[in-house]
Design a protein around this nucleic acid. Structure first.
Lengths: 221, 221
DNA sequence: GTCGCAACAAAAATCGATTTTTACTATGAC
DNA sequence: GTCATAGTAAAAATCGATTTTTGTTGCGAC
């Protein structure tokens, strides 16, 4: 038997991806109750795959589920944001150290490639979504050699949570430039295996994003 | 309008809980593909709530989902177990420190109560499931005052993963006694706010469980 | 006016049937 | 015998209709 292709995604997986994207982008108001009927119409899918996607998303933490009363978009609070950021800093520092330990030549090459694509996306500022994609991939690639699959999983989850805040916050003019300088420095430190400096920088990098993201939430809840 | 009662759980939530329990207890073989039809018959539920539960469980990490070919029980490997344990140690140490910082009188009382129930469950060794329940609640209670909801969430998730290994491992005669002594010490250290000693002990406590749990997995995969 | 309750409307959850996809088997060409 | 392919059986995924639960409104008692 010949190896089959990855095959097309199920409707449930597609709607999951679409909803996840829209939730992170802030297309739904925080705290909003989702009207399943209108989601069905909007995304042009049946009830079953839609409900499966909603269930996955609530297990993932991008939705909350109340017993017989449907799904709700989680609120954005300052405490929640602080919690997410503190953990991201801890987790990503740890993962970065392990990545620097384990990363090989192949990884270095791919990291450089990811950084290159990110810079390119930066130039053509018209396509914001494309930059977001490249940015996510860069950070994934950076930590990839970390052997702890669970740690990477949690980092990804926290990253998605964080982005709900960040993408809602008002854009700051010079910011992109500063962040991108940090990305460049991260690559350099990574290639040189300057572990301590890299640790400190990733912390600072997240801290900077945090200060931006604070613009997204009112006082606490 | 008067406040309504918590209301009965949906079929999806019930089947979710039942499946989760059975997965953690090791009722399904690791790596096994789940036959949806027979699950439906066994748990006496319809397809829709069953599939919703399966989707939640795979987002939670107790199942894996392959594109158009259903759900599968994740394998048990040594690398996975090591990963889980290392993170549990780090996370629970951290959470414990924060819990000791934040815990108040009320918490101290409830912790003592939880410990008492655990000891009681220990005496009546006939009901193993009851002890498991009390044990879980004790550890939850211990860390409860930790303010980081996300950290507690991850700890719970890792705990469930770990239990898949632990509960499959062969029972060791004197073990329960040693573990329970540690629980008692933990309470004492917690009440006295001896943070460093408590940190060290929770680490050791997890380490001991780990050595038991190793019995559950073959050589690596 | 407020409370309780019934009736109704809307939404969520569930069911059973149908469609789609995969897994398996058998057949025939080379 | 090996490979490819068609055909069939089984399983997964999806659909549309139905049931159950919630939320709202209106009516009457106090």
């Amino acid at each position: 038997m010949s190896q089959r292709e990855p095959a097309g995604l199920t409707a449930a997986s597609q709607i999951y991806a679409a909803l996840k994207r829209d939730l992170i982008q802030g297309r739904f108001a925080a705290g909003e109750k989702l009207a399943i009927k209108s989601l069905k119409d909007h995304y042009q899918v049946g009830l079953s795959p839609l409900r499966e996607a909603l269930n996955r998303l609530s297990a993932y933490g991008l939705l909350t589920q109340e017993n017989q009363r449907g799904f709700r978009v989680p609120a954005l609070t300052r405490t929640d944001l602080d919690d997410i950021v503190t953990l991201r800093q801890r987790f990503e520092r740890q993962a970065l150290v392990e990545a620097l330990d384990n990363g090989d030549d192949q990884w270095e090459a791919e990291l450089l490639a990811a950084f290159h694509r990110l810079k390119r996306a930066d130039d053509q500022a018209e396509d914001l979504e494309h930059w977001e994609q490249m940015h996510l991939q860069f950070h994934r690639r950076l930590l990839e050699p970390c052997a702890s699959r669970w740690l990477l999983r949690f980092i990804e989850q926290l990253h998605d949570q964080f982005d709900r805040y960040r993408r809602l916050a008002p854009a700051i003019p010079g910011l992109r430039k500063t962040l991108d300088a940090q990305h460049g420095e991260l690559v350099e430190l990574a290639l040189d295996r300057r572990t301590e400096a890299a640790r400190a920088l990733i912390h600072e990098h997240i801290q900077l994003s945090y200060e931006v993201a604070c613009g997204a939430c009112r006082d606490d809840a």
